[in-house]
Every structure is written in structure tokens, then in C-alpha cells.
Amino acid sequence: MTPVLDFVPIWTLILGAGIFFYVLLDGFDLGVGMLYGLAPDVETRNIVMNSIAPVWDGNETWLVLGGVGLLAAFPLAFAIIIPALYFPILAMLLALVFRGVAFEFRFRDSPHRSFWDHGFCYGSAIATFAQGMMLGAFIQGFEVEGRHFTGSALDFITPFSLMTAIALMFGYGLLGAGWLILKTEGEIQAAARRHGKVCLIAVLIAIAVVSIWTPLMNEDIARRWFSWPNIAFLSPVPIATAVSAFGTWRALNGKSEAGSFIGAVLLFALSYIGIAISLWPMIVPYHYDLWEAASSARTQAFLLVGTLFLLPVILVYTGWSYWVFRGKVRGDGGYH
């Protein structure tokens, strides 16, 4: 029973990367889904949807891997966090179902096209909003006794989680706009630049608010960031964030087609790192750390064998399929 090797760090890395991939990948296509609602005509909607059609289902599969990965590697976190987020998870799942089938049915079930159009747009918005509330509730922590969540199913609704929910909508909107700038041209691209700018301003305000609000809520987090010498070690995070924000703004206003998307990805990565620094090593804030919530070494080892083989293959293939579908998307479904 005694663990010979400590697998927790590697599982933290795998799961941390997995969740980040999910946020990034489904983030941009949920963002595109929300911007879809602003498209003025059918032609534009076709182009916007086709820009993510080849990749969305792969993106969503990361959510399943994140879920079962958490269950297998950190079961205590799964058993506390998921019931605590009962309703946001329900809303997210139902919204994702609608949004997922809309891709297929919009083309196949043309008598109800506008129904599926709405399902796609609102589904994307609701799923994003729900994920934002989960993020807020996670940062605020859960009421726990023993190995169970003991709060109420409505605990997740707080001013803070409402704020993070709206912030995430703008964040995904920014990723989505960056993606559309990359994949489209002409009037659609110009509109994406305009939307991107609005989103970027909102995202920067949100990052500032969270950065002030979180340390005010929690003394440990304040001490971690602002005590000496931490403040010196950690200062690159806010500085890099400011630089990325400036770069994204320049890219949105300039000619660069990849810059806005790359900038948005950097902003997400830095925010993610910021949250990780604040909460480390907690996985059930503020009750259990990664080691306390981990499954047995045998469990983690058994799963690691296959994961180390399958995950790189999946990553390479994912990269390859993005490469295949590179270039601008057109209304008739082709790329050029």
C-alpha cells in the first residue's frame, strides 16, 4: 500500500494542462457561438459556424477527459466539487447538448433552422455563463464536512461568481473574435475586430477586479502575492499580463491576423497561472490539497501507463487536424 513513487505532481500537470486545453479550445468555439448571435445574415452565420465545425467535437471531448481524469486521479475533489456545482453543471451540460446537436441539425433539419440557430447561440452563452459561475464558486471555496459537500445547491450564486461568469463570457468572446479574425476576411473580420476590442476592455476590467477582490476575500492569498520576497518573484505575472493586453490591443487595431488570438491565449494562460498561484496546493479550496484528495498510487500508476501512451498521440493528431483545416473559411463550406 505504501506509495513508492509520488504520482501526484505528474497528475497535477496532466490534469492542469487538460483543463487548460479545454478552456482554450472550447473557449474559442463557445466564444464563436456567442458571436454567432451577432451575425447579420445567413451567409455570415454559415461562415462563422463553418469556422469551428471541423474541430468543435474534439474540443468538447477534453471536458469528458477532464471529468473522468479528476474522478480517477483526485476523487475526493470530484466527489465534493461536482455536487457543490449541481445546477451550473446541469445548465452547462444541457446547453452543450443543444449547442452540439445544432451543428448537425441546422443543416439536416432546415424547417427548424432558426430554432437550432438560437439553440447554438444561447447554448454557447449559457454554457459559458455556467462555467464562469463554477470558476467563481471554486475560487471562493466550498462548505465541507468530512469527505462531503454540506452547503446548499444555491451557494454558488454570489456577487463574485456572477462577476466571474460575465467576465468569462467576454473572455471567451475575445478568444472567439481572435479565432474569427484568423479564419475569416472582409466585413466578418472587421466585425470580429470591433467585437474583440469591446471584449478585451471588459476582460481587462475583469482581470483587475478579480486581482483586487480575491486577495481582499482571502488573507492567505493576499499574503502569498504581496509579502516579500514573493512580490518580486510573482511580479512577472502582472507585468506579462499588461504586455499581452497591450499586444492584443495593437493586433486588434492593426493588420495582424494571428496576433489577437495569440494575445487572447496569453491572457488566458496568465490568468490561469494567477489562479493556480493563488490556490496552490489546494484542489478543494480551502479544505483539501492535491495530495489529500489524490487516489491511491496504484490507481494513479495504472492510469498513467495508458495516458502517457495515448495522450501524446491525441495531441499530435489534434494539432494535425487543425493544420489540415487551416486557412480562411468560406460560405459554401470550403476552405481557401
Binding site: V64, L71, P75, S295, I314
Partner: peptide, 16 residues
């Protein structure tokens, strides 16, 4: 989860 978690995760990985 220590027992069923990896089985379900392998299903997810295989499907993916």
C-alpha cells in the same frame, strides 16, 4: 473512484 475511475478514464481516452 480508486477502482472505477481509471476504467472510466480509459473508456474516455479510448473513445477520444
Amino acid at each position: 473512484a480508486d477502482i472505477l475511475g481509471p476504467l472510466l478514464a480509459y473508456e474516455g481516452l479510448t473513445a477520444f
